[in-house]
Computed example of a mutant assay.
Amino acid sequence: MTTNQGVRPGGRSARVQASVHKAVTELLDERERGELTVPMIAARAGVTPSTIYRRWGDLNELLGDVALQRIRPDGEPADTGSLKGDLLAWGIQYMEETASVPGRAVVLDLLAAGGDCSGRCLEIARAQFGILLERAVARGEPVPDKDLIVDRLVAPLVYRILFSNQQLEEGYVEVLVDGVLEGVAS
């Protein structure tokens, strides 16, 4: 249950969201995720628990919403001059950030929230790929479909990061990027 869609930016709603997100972030810096409770977050944020339940539904949805804010890119992806280079730079950065302890926690929070959070996470990645693909088209390069990038680059990275004890390296990302570009018309 996500009730924060369609909320107008600014005003009291934005202040509540900022306060609650700040409280979650501070509390996660101080203690384990499993120790967090809605009343604890509400007290830190200066709101009532019912405000959190009304807006986010439950703790998992709130943590997912905070995780989404943490994964939003600060800017456009790197422009290396080629689609292969751009995908490689994006993939390496994604691997490094997501394989970190905080990165894994963010992914797990998104998965626990499910539904709308997972969909919004996918849209963030697809928007980044849209930028890369627009650049490639402008350079006259052939491009794959965004979903192919998700299926052949993002999905294997997330799976390996979450379910393997293997330390991932840049060479693995290179293999995945080659798989994305394999068969794309020249």
Rank of each mutant, 00 (worst) to 15 (best):
Gly130His: 05
Pro102Val: 04
Ala67Trp: 03
Asp29Cys: 09
Leu181Trp: 05
Pro77Ala: 06
Gly46Ile: 14
Leu162Ser: 01
Glu134Val: 11
Arg135Met: 08
Arg160Leu: 14
Thr48Arg: 14
Ala23Tyr: 04
Asn4His: 12
Pro9Ala: 10
Gly11Ala: 06
Arg44Cys: 04
Gly179Glu: 10
Gly85Leu: 09
Leu162Glu: 09
Glu182Thr: 08
Phe129Trp: 05
Leu110Ala: 08
Arg70Gly: 01
Gly64Thr: 08
Tyr53Trp: 09
Glu35Asp: 15
Met1Gly: 13
Ser50Pro: 01
Pro144Ala: 13
Asp109Glu: 13
Gly115Leu: 04
Ala67Met: 11
Ser19Met: 03
Leu148Pro: 02
Ala89Glu: 14
Gln166Met: 09
Gln166Leu: 09
Leu133Asp: 02
Ile41Thr: 07
Gly183Met: 12
Ser19Trp: 00
Ala78His: 01
Phe163Lys: 05
Asp151Ile: 03
Leu162Arg: 07
Met95His: 09
Trp90Leu: 09
Cys121Glu: 11
Asp178Cys: 08
Ala113Met: 10
Asn165Lys: 10
Thr2Arg: 14
Arg104Ala: 05
Glu61Met: 07
Gly119Ser: 14
Ile71Met: 08
Arg31Trp: 00
Ile52Val: 12
Met40Arg: 11
Val184Gln: 05
Val7Met: 14
Gln128His: 04
Glu97Pro: 00
Leu36Glu: 10
Glu174Ser: 14
Pro156Tyr: 01
Pro156Asn: 13
Lys22His: 13
Gly130Glu: 08
Thr37Asp: 04
Val106Leu: 13
Val107Arg: 14
Ala138Arg: 15
Lys146Met: 08
Gln167Pro: 04
Leu68Ser: 02
Asp86Thr: 00
Val106Gln: 09
Glu174Phe: 00
Ala43Phe: 01
Lys22Leu: 11
Arg15Asn: 07
Gln17Phe: 09
Trp90Asp: 01
Glu141Phe: 12
Met95Cys: 07
Arg72Gly: 14
Val180Phe: 02
Val16Lys: 10
Val66His: 04
Gln17Trp: 06
Leu63Gln: 03
Met1Ile: 11
Val180Ser: 02
Gly140Pro: 10
Ala136Phe: 07
Ser186Glu: 15
Val177Leu: 06
Val107His: 08
Leu62Ile: 10
Glu26Pro: 02
Asp178Thr: 11
Leu181Tyr: 05
Val7Ile: 15
Ala155Pro: 00
Leu162Trp: 05
Arg15Phe: 10
Asp74Arg: 10
Ser13Trp: 07
Leu153Pro: 00
Gly183Thr: 12
Val66Ser: 01
Thr51Met: 06
Gly115Val: 05
Ile149Cys: 05
Arg160Met: 14
Gln93Leu: 10
